[in-house]
Design a binder for these strands. Structure first.
Length: 497
RNA sequence: GGUCACGUGGCCGAGUGGUUAGGCAGAGGUCUGCAAAACCUUUUACAGCGGUUCAAAUCCGCUCGUGACCUCCA
């Protein structure tokens, strides 16, 4: 394993901490996945893409990562009030579908989008409804431990009692007294002893379509509980990384901690990582705000705010240009710039993959250039090691691309940097573009062979100084989105930006 | 109201005590039959006002502005 001083920003401490896994070389990472009652929007996609890059980098460093990302398919209520309806059940009722039909439809869509964005599938993708038994068991234990109580077939977590022994609110920087003061509304609490309590298990009303048998009667598990159960089941009572959007810090993650600690007395997570929000014209993209842009609207350019389509990789590139803890704003200018940058990187990838080292006894090694390249490579790692700062790493990668292009067009001879640096330069570039950043070519790969044939015609025309034909060929290529480039010692081509 | 962020050049977006972020756009150059691409060079910055310091865009204070969370949301 390469020695690296990876640092991660831990929401718990609000500082960057050295990343030291509990059981190296193994790393356990849990990320809160989507509640599949609707299409995921771009804001959701950003978070999952950020964690995909984190997952990829950890693997690149040699860690054996078990990446668990759940699918929530029950328990997520429309509101925290007792009468709040389950989101899945509501959608099922509205569209006249089986709840599992709703789940399947949106889970399929989610997986399709993840694939389009080139996000790797997680190691385990557990669903809440597949872990009802475990959720009942955890609830029983929490009651036994005295941190939950049963009322009319429902079970609630007793936040005030928990807070006598532990600190509820430490993740989101909240003090329970303020929470209590802030929730002093005159509406009936219903069954809860206190408004800040939350449901572990809810009794199913007569018409409720999602219901399971439990020691407290027929009902369904509360939101929050599935993440505690499933993270513990697959990663252990304490694991390394828990991630999610920062909107989940409170109450979701706060409740998760309380449940896990209330269950076994152990802190569930060593490092909490939270991604920042995606905004549209400065306003957070959210389902409730109604400003959500769906992935296919971006990819096809059909959203009213978009001037043209932007591909999945363009969006991924834009994500890479922003640090995960900063807000990211969507705009046409930003996306257009990202598209150009992306094409540049991919054209570089093609070049890097076919570039060959040329030994030359008469050319001395230029140590200054070698040092520059070594420094750039270090900067890529320095960026990623600094809390996964992809913006810094990507800028360094573009500097590396300049060197690659310089070698490609003959301004630097391969022998001037030596075989070792030459290979290291190409390997680093290819590895980071494909494996770590997860950027891939979005064009048809078989075009490569076709281009070779066509370029022979072009070369011939040039040789014959038939410039009329040359210009005509260029124009034809351009129609197909390809530009021909006359190099000093040959002919090459690239995708038009 | 409470808590917490942020305000960087035409646009996006890093950095955070002294040394070029990067991309897009603009300008000049090299290369080229002409181009394109690539490469090289280059213009426009750190909201405002004070303070600390040899030195601040970077730390501190105030002012103005924007946003997030406190309710379901990645």
């Amino acid at each position: 394993m390469i020695p690296h001083q990876l640092k991660v920003f831990n929401t718990l401490s609000r500082t960057k901490e050295p990343f030291e896994p509990l059981h190296p070389p193994f790393v356990g990472m849990y990320v809160c996945g989507p509640t599949v009652y609707n299409y995921v929007h771009l804001g959701n996609c950003r978070t999952f893409t950020c964690f995909d890059i984190i997952y990829r980098y950890l693997k690149h460093l040699g860690y054996q990562v078990r990446y668990v990302r759940n699918i929530t398919d029950v328990g997520h209520l429309e509101s925290d009030a007792d009468e709040g309806e389950d989101k899945i059940a509501k959608k099922a009722r509205l569209e006249n579908l089986e709840p599992m039909e709703v789940v399947q439809r949106y889970a399929n869509h989610f997986h399709l989008v993840m694939e389009q964005l080139n996000n790797l599938p997680p190691s385990i993708e557990p669903q809440a409804t597949g872990h009802i038994v475990e959720q009942i068991e955890m609830t029983k234990k929490i009651i036994e431990n005295g941190f939950a109580y049963q009322v009319n077939g429902s079970v609630y977590f007793d936040v005030r009692k928990y807070n006598l022994h532990y600190q509820y609110g430490k993740l989101s920087g909240r003090v329970i007294e303020e929470l209590i003061a802030g929730t002093r509304d005159l509406e009936g609490q219903g069954e809860k002893r206190n408004p800040e309590d939350f449901a572990l298990w809810k009794k199913a009303a007569p018409g409720h379509i999602m219901r399971w048998q439990s020691p407290w009667g027929e009902g369904f598990p509360g939101w929050h509980l599935e993440c505690s159960v499933m993270s513990q089941k697959y990663l252990g009572q304490t694991f390394d990384i828990h991630g999610g959007g920062m909107d989940l810090k409170f109450p979701h993650h706060e409740c998760e901690i309380a449940q896990s600690v209330g269950y076994c007395g152990k802190e569930p997570v060593k490092y909490w990582l939270h991604t920042n929000m995606l905004t549209v014209n400065g306003v957070r993209m959210s389902k409730s705000a109604g400003n959500g842009i769906l992935p296919h609207e971006l990819f096809t350019g059909t959203h009213p705010l978009l001037e043209r389509p932007y591909s999945p990789m363009t969006f991924r590139y834009a994500i890479l240009q922003t640090h995960y803890r900063s807000t990211m704003d969507i705009s046409n200018d930003a996306l257009k710039a990202a598209h150009k940058g992306y094409v540049r990187v991919i054209n570089g990838l093609r070049i890097a993959k076919k570039m060959q080292y040329l030994p030359d006894e008469n050319t001395p090694v230029q140590s200054k250039i070698v040092e520059e390249i070594q420094q750039i490579i270090q900067n890529i790692y320095k960026g990623m090691d600094d809390d996964f700062n992809t913006a810094v790493a990507l800028s360094a990668l573009l500097n590396l691309l300049k060197k690659i292009n310089s070698v490609h067009n003959g301004q630097i001879k391969p022998a001037e940097i030596g075989r070792e640096t030459f290979q290291q330069m190409l390997n680093t570039y290819i590895t980071f573009v494909e494996e770590v950043f997860g950027l891939r070519q979005e064009f048809r790969p078989d075009i490569e062979q076709v281009m070779e044939v066509l370029l022979n015609v072009y070369r011939q025309a040039k040789q014959n100084k038939d410039f009329g034909m040359v210009d005509k060929l260029r124009a034809e290529f351009r129609k197909l989105g390809v530009v021909v480039k006359d190099m000093k010692d040959g002919v090459d081509w690239a995708y038009e930006e």
